[in-house]
């Protein structure tokens, strides 16, 4: 096992358990995305909507593995969830929160443009995101659109900027704590 400082920091940053073919692997969400790790909770349509929206809101979210990150956390029990939503007053389980909003966004794209959200051009997609952010959406099911926008934006910021790679992207030091020498 490589125990270099860099490796240690990476493992302290964001490596999660992903199930593939009955076996469990420790991967970052980006690695899980690159290896097309199967999803456990989200269906392909929801996952596509998720990453289209997340990538448009926080560029870099797709390759950082937003679909695998959210999916893995939705399959965890709420106590061990790393999602910000766990302390925003939304009762667990959280899957319905995401899927209801994602399906509303997809429906909105079809209503307005007769296309899947993934097929929208950047201008069409931006308008939908603007309206979500301001709560100016009709026939929206699930959590309020502006709240969902806030949560998804935060999730995407987590994996794009909140990891060791994210700190490097911003050119700021990560500076983890000293490894504790003993526990009480």
């Amino acid at each position: 096992m490589n125990t270099t400082r860099r490796k240690f920091l990476k493992s302290s940053s964001l490596v999660l358990s992903f199930a593939v073919g009955g076996k469990t692997f420790l991967l970052s969400p980006a690695e899980a995305y690159a290896q097309s790790v199967p999803l456990a909770v989200l269906n392909e349509s929801d996952a596509t909507t998720l990453e289209v929206l997340a990538e448009a809101i926080v560029p870099g979210a797709r390759v950082a593995g937003i679909r695998n990150f959210i999916d893995s956390q939705l399959s965890a029990d709420s106590e061990n969830s790393l999602l910000m939503i766990r302390y925003l007053g939304v009762p667990a389980p959280f899957a319905g929160f995401y899927t209801a909003a994602l399906r509303s966004a997809e429906k909105l794209a079809k209503t307005r443009h007769q296309k899947h959200i993934a097929a929208l051009n950047s201008e069409e997609l931006s308008q939908i995101i603007d309206d979500m952010a301001q709560g100016k959406v009709k026939d929206w099911q699930g959590p309020p659109a502006e709240f969902f926008f806030f949560v998804l934006r935060s999730d995407a910021a987590d994996i794009v900027y909140g990891t060791l790679d994210g700190f490097e992207r911003l050119d700021i030091p990560y500076m983890p704590h000293i490894k504790p020498e003993q526990s009480w």
Binding site: I129, R153, S154, I172
Partner: peptide, 17 residues
Amino acid sequence: KPNGLLGIANTRPDIYG
């Protein structure tokens, strides 16, 4: 820190892209 409820990204929740 960059992320989290009190992180830099959420100080301007109106900005995206």
